[in-house]
Design a binder for these strands. Structure first.
Length: 234
DNA sequence: AACCAGGACGTGA
DNA sequence: TCACGTCATGGT
């Protein structure tokens, strides 16, 4: 078994299924006592169910660019309140209303433009699965966002490389700092079973692990991956 | 109170 | 290509 699979097994045993991508609107996503939405669906890989949920994931993928998820969740709730979690309504909303709705997610000027641009693109698809190149040609959609959309909204076996992935796996000496995005992505895809369920779960597990232990300044005490680190002095 | 968060784009070298 | 500045809110 290769090192990537070992990491996957350890993280899965440690944290369990993560249930990504979180969705606001699906059966069972009721507000909790804290007023938050529990949109996670551990072990259920059948989502998204319809075009509406597909679009919601795309919007979340854009809003979460360099932004903490709770802020994105607020923005999504605002959009839902306006009935604007669909491309038609995002395009017909007044500029100021769109901006103020997504304000909690930060970069609201840029992201308002990105959501408009993407909404137009989404309508041209008419339900078809987009190509990676098509997504990358959309202004505001870079490699990670494109791959997040393909993996979580369209269930395509494309691995998502984010800042957490780079951090965790370079510390494990399994990737090098000078590797570009696609080299890292292909390295994951080469070492893992090529199904979208594994990719979805692994990416979510890496995020969880990075938040708990592999922070910017690492907290290695108690890290479940310590046995895999070559440099035992860490 | 600085630092960070599930990046992408525009610019100049 | 590539390094760097810009964009912005909210939690810790």
């Amino acid at each position: 078994m290769n090192q990537f699979l070992k990491v996957y097994k350890i993280l899965m045993k440690e944290y369990g299924p993560q249930g990504w991508w979180p969705l606001l609107e699906h059966k069972g996503s009721n507000p909790t006592a804290s007023g938050r939405i529990t949109g996670y669906h551990p072990g259920d890989y059948s989502l998204p169910k319809d075009d509406h949920q597909i679009f919601e994931i795309c919007v979340g993928a854009i809003l979460t660019q360099n932004t903490a998820w709770p802020n994105v969740e607020r923005a999504l709730l605002n959009l839902r309140r306006l009935g604007a979690l669909n491309p038609e309504r995002i395009l017909s909303l007044e500029e100021d209303k769109l901006r103020s709705a997504i304000r909690p997610a930060g970069y609201f000027n840029q992201k308002a433009k990105k959501l408009r641009t993407f909404s137009k693109f989404f309508l041209t698809l008419k339900g078809r699965i987009p190509l990676r190149e098509e997504l990358l040609s959309v202004w505001g959609v870079g490699r990670e966002t494109a791959d997040s959309i393909l993996l979580y909204a369209y269930r395509q076996p494309i691995f998502v490389v984010d800042a957490y992935t780079r951090r965790v796996f370079s510390r494990l000496n399994l990737i090098m700092h000078d590797w570009d995005y696609d080299k890292i992505r292909k390295e994951f895809e080469r070492n893992l079973p090529r199904n979208f369920e594994t990719y979805q779960e692994f990416h979510a597990l890496i995020v969880e692990h990075a938040k708990r232990f592999c922070k910017k300044t690492p907290e290695c005490s108690g890290c479940p991956l310590r046995s895999l680190v070559k440099d035992e002095s860490i």
